[in-house]
Design a binder for these strands. Sequence first.
DNA 1: CGCTGCCTGGAGCGATCGCTCTAGTAGTTT
DNA 2: AAACTACTAGAGCGATCGCTCCAGGCAGCG
Lengths: 194, 194
Amino acid sequence: MRGRDTRAELVQTMAGLLRAQGYTATGRAQLLAESGVSNGSLYHHFPGGMEEVAEVALEASGCFVADALREALDGAPNAGAGVARFLDIAQEAAIDEQCVGCPVAPTALESPIISPRLRAVAARCFDQWEALIAARLRADGWPEDSLSTAASAALALIEGALLLARVSGQLSHLAHAKHAALTLLAAPPAQDDS
Amino acid sequence: MRGRDTRAELVQTMAGLLRAQGYTATGRAQLLAESGVSNGSLYHHFPGGMEEVAEVALEASGCFVADALREALDGAPNAGAGVARFLDIAQEAAIDEQCVGCPVAPTALESPIISPRLRAVAARCFDQWEALIAARLRADGWPEDSLSTAASAALALIEGALLLARVSGQLSHLAHAKHAALTLLAAPPAQDDS
DNA sequence: CGCTGCCTGGAGCGATCGCTCTAGTAGTTT
DNA sequence: AAACTACTAGAGCGATCGCTCCAGGCAGCG
């Protein structure tokens, strides 16, 4: 294995570990063992060490989720249906991969004290996702001053449901959130045209 | 400091650290330094070591949140207003203590792989909170078969909002969730009386 | 007072942490 | 073929990890 492959393998493996157990719990030895990369290669591709790998991996996970979310929103009649569709995809993926939950959340929650840089990356991910939902709401005709409120709540619903599903092991939380999202984002609120 | 005080101090300090950075990131040295307890005392009161302290601390945090949630729900006209009130309390506490977020979530997210016992405690916390909301919905006259769906979604909304607020540093996420909770739990759905 | 048992303080253990450094290999260039 | 660059393998570093163990202090009771 040489060049780009090695780097990509590290990022991919790190992303999986971050999703499963977060940043601090992921030791260098585990990353090397699961990726099959040697210690020297790690520090060649990522002079910044573990933190740099985590940064890149988190960024990659953020983009991956953003793509899935964008696709779900685009292929649905409205934002509510799009969020519901996204939750369906998350559920299917959970069954396939035996792994539930947001790939960013575990790292995000411990990051504020552990690593400001990781916190910043995680915050950017969430902002991006919220912006995607807000854009779809705007396209649905939602009034401008209600966009961020509704989008933030929808994202909170998604993240919370993924959290509950992971900890409890019950995927039904995703279905419940799906139902709530459909209710919450079904139609724009009464227009407050000034 | 002797006896009960030492034990309580350990639990209290551990609860704070778990909230701020989760389980794996909390080292034994940090716990001892911040609590002012010596290493010998730790293993006298908690023969099970760090994991046992974390277990007890997580349990304590769960009860603390449950009390606050119960109080908020009891003192409100309906479940939606109760959840909104709880989010207000969380926001005030965040401003006072300079610390946002659920005290259980960070540990909960890393627990499934790290420690099955911590996962179980966290799951019990979430179950308990969801049950509190469900009980209030029942008292509001919600149909029995919609209770768990609505309560699960409400809890997801709370947890998600606390997560977003912590990572972004923007307390406004709590206000957005509050608005959504009021909408979502305002009135029981159309009765499906069979 | 002296004895007993709970509790504390701290030295020290092996294991593991993230990381540095160097020797060596593979691929490209000239 | 020689020189050069890109990359890899792995030994080894100091620091820190969670934990064990024991000597000593400090009640409460005779």
